[in-house]
């Protein structure tokens, strides 16, 4: 057989099955059990919120890509869907659907596309949008409800007020009020560990983040108390958005450090900020701002945590 046309290219001539879309679909899959638990716990209305988040995000991404004269197919790479789902998972069950639509639009528009789209945003888009929502609609963003959408306080708020909090088991399996995606620690861990196993996320950020929060909430006395080493680290790890944030948001590829040591710094830093806000701040929960602040530090962290190449002598670069 004659060979007429050969492709000439630089090696390697092989590629792994890795792709952005594959990773994003896995993240969506890993979040699904926790999201479905919210539907089960609160009712079918939650499904409306989740879909509103995803559909708005993908539609906004497509629209803005079109305006930027970029390939619209980029909206289907899964990253916009992940952002939309995460945003929806970060609102309380009592939130109106339009709040999610606005949040999703802000996440994609202000959080991501304004900076140049995928790979260029300095802040986790879903968290940036959540921060805007918390500031703009503080009452609606804290409209915590229990099953049947009756008003209820979150465990962290109860804890701060000195009231009785749910048992560790209820917290672990998610039978407590909270943002849609943060409730079932068990299901979040199943998803998060799957992503670690698939090497889509690095264990260093969640482990150092959660570990730091546990350590500090155990060691430090909360506001108004003086005893050291008397905290309740297990309660702090199981409540609020810590597990959701540590496994699914602080690990966001684009906004977390690319160096191995940098990821530890990111986790420890976010843990310190979370613990300080929870123990001494004006808000019951601090995961959102902790991650956003560490996102802002990411370029600096990368710069100061560069590793040495193979065979480098100590002290050399």
């Amino acid at each position: 057989m004659d060979i007429k046309k050969l492709t000439v290219s630089s090696s390697p001539h092989f590629h792994s099955k890795n792709s952005v879309r594959r990773a994003m679909l896995w993240v969506l899959a890993a979040l699904t059990p926790a999201a479905l638990f919210a539907v089960y716990y609160y009712g079918a209305y939650v499904l409306v919120l989740l879909l509103a988040g995803i559909v708005t995000a993908v539609a906004c991404e497509a629209l803005i890509l079109m305006l930027r004269k970029k390939p619209v197919s980029g909206a289907l790479d899964g990253s916009a869907a992940v952002t939309g789902l995460l945003l929806a998972l970060n609102v309380p069950a009592g939130a109106p659907w339009w709040l999610v639509v606005i949040g999703s639009f802000l996440a994609i528009g202000i959080g991501k596309q304004v900076f140049g789209g995928i790979g260029h945003n300095p802040f986790n888009p879903a968290l940036a949008a959540r921060a805007i929502l918390v500031v703009s609609w503080p009452a609606r963003m804290t409209d915590w409800v229990g099953p049947g959408l009756v008003s209820a306080a979150t465990p962290l708020a109860q804890y701060r007020a000195g009231n009785v909090v749910p048992s560790y088991l209820d917290l672990f399996f998610g039978f407590r009020p909270g943002s849609l995606g943060e409730m079932s620690v068990f299901l979040l861990l199943v998803g998060g560990l799957t992503l670690i196993f698939l090497k889509i996320i690095d264990w260093k950020i969640p482990v150092s983040f959660v570990g730091t929060v546990a350590l500090l909430t155990w060691v430090l006395p909360r506001e108004g108390q003086t005893a050291f080493f008397a905290g309740d680290p297990l309660f702090h790890v199981l409540s609020g958005g810590l597990i959701l944030g540590a496994f699914f948001m602080a690990t966001d590829w684009t906004t977390s450090p690319i160096t191995k040591r940098g990821r530890i710094v990111m986790g420890v830093g976010a843990g310190i900020i979370t613990a300080i806000i929870r123990l001494y701040g004006g808000l019951p929960e601090g995961v959102t701002f902790a991650i956003l602040i560490m996102n802002a530090c990411t370029p600096l962290i990368d710069r100061f945590t560069l590793g040495k190449s193979f065979g480098s002598a100590r002290g050399a670069s």
Binding site: N18, V20, A23, D77, S79, G117, I118, G119, H120, K199, D202, W253, T254, T255, S256, I258, T259, K260
Partner: peptide, 12 residues
């Protein structure tokens, strides 16, 4: 080819 998403797979 797409934009780098800073996943750091190449570094790892």
């Amino acid at each position: 080819p797409m934009t780098c998403v800073r996943c750091a797979a190449c570094i790892d």
